[in-house]
Simulated assay, not measured.
Amino acid sequence: MQIESEARSLPPETRGIGNTIRLTGWITLWSQLAIGVVSVFALLFALTGRRFVQQQNVGLSIGIFWAVCGIVLLLFSLYWDFRYTRIGKALENHNPALHPSKPDTTKILRLGIIVGLVGILLTLLGASSTMFVLMAKSISQTPGVAISDPYRIIRPMDVFVAVADITGIAAHFVGTVASLWLLERVHQH
């Protein structure tokens, strides 16, 4: 009986924004996790393929470095998505003393946007350096190059580095869009 009266005393707007933040946090977490797993597997395929190659390509090493940096930042972004779920749950709590303040919630959402944008930047650096290497290899190929110089061909390992970087960009994009959308919802509240 007392819980029902407390539920009625909780403004529906607060309950609604809490539910929105919580659900968006879960959806974003699982979406970023799924895309991030693809990025990690592509990077693992590229790294295991590099062990079998005698001549390493420095340009791809830079792309791999930035992809790893993007994945590390993606792990932080996943933690931040989980934090969104906890903020949403706190806003749905019947005790107003446990509700995070609007400035605190806004600050957390802004940090999520910054993390997403930095992640996009890092993985864009990796993707651009990898694409430059792939373009240079494709331009330098002549007919019959696979027979005369096998190190100048585009190998599947090279493409996996590009896939890791591009899926990293997609994962960070999802997180950034979700944080921007939540920030807009909080400002409307």
Rank of each mutant, 00 (worst) to 15 (best):
G49F: 01
L73P: 13
L47S: 14
L121F: 09
L98C: 09
I87S: 01
I147H: 11
A34H: 06
V161Q: 04
L44S: 13
E92Y: 07
L74G: 09
V159I: 04
P12D: 15
L74E: 04
A42R: 01
K89D: 02
L111W: 09
V68S: 09
K89R: 11
M1N: 01
V133H: 00
A42N: 12
R22N: 06
I17K: 03
H187C: 09
S31R: 03
M135P: 11
N19W: 06
L124S: 07
F76G: 04
F45H: 00
S61E: 08
A34L: 10
I87K: 05
A46C: 09
T123F: 07
L125R: 06
Q32D: 05
T14G: 05
D149G: 05
R22L: 10
G70D: 12
G59L: 14
W80H: 14
N93H: 12
I154S: 06
K137A: 02
F82P: 00
L91Q: 12
M157I: 08
R50S: 05
L98Y: 00
D104N: 10
P103Y: 07
S39V: 04
T20Y: 03
P103G: 05
V186M: 14
K89N: 04
V186Q: 08
K137H: 15
S148W: 08
D158G: 03
L74M: 13
R50N: 11
L121T: 04
G16K: 09
V40W: 05
L43M: 12
G70P: 02
W66V: 02
I21T: 08
L111S: 10
H99F: 05
N57K: 13
V177A: 14
I17S: 10
L109E: 04
S9C: 03
I113Q: 10
L134H: 11
L182I: 14
Q32R: 13
S101N: 08
Q54T: 07
A170P: 11
T142G: 02
D81G: 12
